[in-house]
């Protein structure tokens, strides 16, 4: 099977993730979409690793997974505490950075 198809899939997943981040309001969904984008990248890295015949891409994919795991820990904690204080998981409610 042509490895390029995997790249198409990765691009598709990334786009879905990006659209989700931009469109959805629920913080959990946004979070999941970010994960989707990260994994789309992973898929692309693995594909490139295969295509070029070296291991760099696969190593980076592992890195990404570790980082993503760390991010999940911190991110979920933030979302939970946000929900506790505001009784809402909508990202638009947290616009405190406005001047």
């Amino acid at each position: 099977m042509n490895p390029v198809n995997y790249l198409y899939l990765a691009a598709l997943l990334f786009t879905i993730g990006a659209a989700g981040v931009l469109i959805r309001r629920n913080a959990i969904v946004v979070f999941m979409c970010v994960e989707l984008m990260l994994n789309a990248c992973n898929l692309a890295f693995v594909t490139f690793s295969r295509m070029h015949g070296n291991l760099d891409g696969q190593i980076i994919a592992f890195f990404t997974m570790v980082v993503a795991a760390a991010e999940v820990v911190v991110g979920l904690a933030i979302i939970v505490s946000l929900f506790r204080s505001r009784h809402s998981a909508s990202v638009d409610d947290a616009s405190l950075m406005k001047l």
Binding site: A18, V21, L22, V91, D92, M97, K98
Partner: peptide, 17 residues
């Protein structure tokens, strides 16, 4: 220009994308 800084994370994300 200040209006662009509306505090909505999604707007910032759009500009980043």
């Amino acid at each position: 220009l200040r209006k662009l800084q509306n505090g909505y994370a999604r707007t910032y994300a759009v500009s980043m994308f």
